[in-house]
């Protein structure tokens, strides 16, 4: 079990991405909504193997449940159709709407869950590192890595500033207008502070030869495992089989 978990987690990021891509494409090849919905369960199963079942399910529910429910409500009531299956005063649920919603939501769920799975089993740092190896420019890599570091820093700072404001007597609760007034004093020092730092950050990067015109090396690298080619070949075979099956149908 632990072995399987490791092999999944250690797969090369682009291999994992190919799995996601395959799942996304397959729902457009296989007709009907049953297969597409089953992709959710496939992803659940993989996330279970990779030891992140709980996070996967939490995120899938948060990201997808509401939107699916709303699509059903909007489409089943308001999709033009004639096969009424339930009605109350001016509202009526039509079969056509349900079919449309089933079809649409199944694809959203499939694509959504395969991406959620991807980011549960892939460290963003690894993904970026593998893209760097594929030739992503250093400036782009820098933007992504820096973004990932700054967001939690700024979020922490926000809490600090808001607490400081509270002790200084700035009200952050109560009437809507009071709360609106608290917004700018919280945000603006945060922004001005971090923007003022960029000037010297440029000097730091220049001092560390960031713009030297040589090919950079990297201490942090991700290695391909022996399973990577196997997984890729399986994906290719599956894809070809699906396409042939679909054409023959």
């Amino acid at each position: 079990m632990d072995q399987i978990k490791k092999s999944i987690l250690h797969l090369y990021p682009t291999t994992k991405f190919l799995v996601t891509l395959f799942l996304c494409i397959s729902v457009f090849i296989v007709p009907g909504y049953l297969y597409a919905y089953s992709v959710l369960f496939i992803c659940m199963f993989f996330s279970y193997l990779a030891g992140s079942f709980k996070e996967f399910s939490d995120l899938a529910i948060k990201a997808l449940l509401l939107i699916v429910v709303f699509i059903f409500i909007l489409q089943s009531f308001f999709y033009p159709g004639t096969h009424v299956i339930w009605s109350w005063s001016i509202f009526s649920i039509k079969q056509e709407g349900i079919d449309f919603a089933l079809n649409l939501t199944s694809k959203i769920v499939a694509i959504g869950s395969s991406f959620i799975l991807f980011f549960r089993i892939t460290k963003v740092k690894d993904l970026i590192s593998s893209l760097e190896a594929l030739g992503l420019p250093p400036k782009v890599t820098y933007i992504f890595l820096s973004t990932l570091q700054i967001i939690p820093e700024m979020k922490k700072l926000t809490i600090v500033i808001m607490d400081a404001q509270k002790t200084r007597g700035v009200e952050t609760e109560g009437k809507l207008f009071t709360r609106i007034k608290a917004f700018l004093p919280t945000l603006s020092p945060l922004i001005l502070g971090s923007i003022a730092g960029t000037e010297e950050r440029v000097l730091t990067l220049e001092s560390r030869a960031f713009s030297a015109k040589v090919k950079k090396t990297s201490l942090y690298t991700v290695e391909k495992t022996k399973y990577d080619p196997i997984v890729r070949i399986i994906l290719l075979i599956l894809l070809i089989t699906l396409i042939i099956w679909r054409v023959m149908l």
């Binding site: 820098y142 890595l145 820096s146 570091q149 700054i150 730092g197 010297e200 950050r201 000097l203 730091t204 990067l205 220049e206 001092s207 560390r208 030869a209 713009s211 030297a212 015109k213």
Partner: peptide, 23 residues
């Protein structure tokens, strides 16, 4: 070129707080 100077002249500047790469 600024890039070439980085190997010739090392510069440690005044404010330590902005002197991290951030990545």
């Amino acid at each position: 070129e600024l890039g070439d100077l980085s190997q010739k002249i090392g510069y440690v500047f005044q404010n330590p707080f902005t002197q991290i790469s951030g990545v």
